[in-house]
Design a protein around this nucleic acid. Structure first.
Length: 231
DNA sequence: GCGACAG
DNA sequence: ATCTTGTCGC
């Protein structure tokens, strides 16, 4: 899919200009449901290698709701922005877009590693990815960046709002009974209720959704056999 | 001023 | 994110 070539984007080299980009793009995040039929769901996993010198992103596309693997791609590129809390997207997005470009088809929905609106300026990685590609996107993070919340009941499926500065910015969601929760937030074109629902429907027996988990395993080295990078 | 801080 | 020992529960 060629909708957001990373090479055609001007990437910032410092936090001040990165912040200006966030402030300029944050109004483009669509917080309501604007989804077509969801037949394919992609999971995006980000991370780094070589003590941070190389950034890597993996994407796995699964059928929905059956979650059968359909396609996968991985992209590595030299790190061009350091990890600074609140600015993760400037470090990871070039690799993420590179991985998405390897796919033959645009996924109908993306579950992205990291935060969406649950971000100091309401423009986390999942929002940035959603705005640049205009693909419906949900942020699924393994730990908290900002926000406070009440104690979370132990049963699978239960959730409590994540709040910051008087507004709900996401949900703390139990994807497995008595297992540490994940942090779900709007990325783009999906409301919070739908984001929670999709996250649960993509989660089977592990803490993380199969989409994200599949991408993570791909990035960790052990790819699945018999799955090509096209449908 | 001090702690907190997605991956 | 990554590293690593000890502990707990099924």
């Amino acid at each position: 899919m060629r909708s957001a070539a990373s090479s055609e984007i001007e990437w910032p080299n410092d936090v001040a200009s990165a912040r200006a980009i966030q402030e300029a793009l944050r109004s483009q995040v669509v917080r309501e449901d604007r989804l077509g039929p969801v037949n394919t769901v992609a999971g995006v996993d980000v991370g780094f290698e070589d003590r941070g010198r190389t950034t890597r992103a993996a994407v796995a596309v699964l059928a929905f709701p059956g979650l059968e693997p359909l396609a996968q791609a991985i992209s590595r590129s030299p790190t061009r922005f350091p990890y600074v809390p609140g600015y993760l997207s400037f470090r990871e997005l070039p690799a993420v877009l590179g991985a998405l470009d390897q796919l033959a088809e645009r996924p109908d929905l993306i579950l992205c590693d990291g935060q969406g609106l649950a971000h100091p300026r309401r423009f986390g990685l999942a929002c940035h990815l959603g705005v640049l590609t205009d693909i419906p996107c949900i942020g699924v993070a393994k730990s908290r960046l900002v926000g406070r919340h009440d104690e979370l009941p132990p049963d699978k499926g239960q959730w409590v709002p994540l709040r910051d500065k008087g507004e709900t910015i996401g949900a703390v969601l139990r994807t497995r009974t008595r297992v540490s929760p994940v942090y779900v937030s709007i990325g783009h074109r999906v409301n919070l209720a739908a984001a929670i629902d999709f996250t649960l429907r993509c989660t089977t027996r592990y803490r993380l959704p199969e989409t994200t988990r599949y991408a993570h395993r791909l990035a960790s080295g052990l790819s699945e056999k018999g799955v090509s990078n096209r449908y």
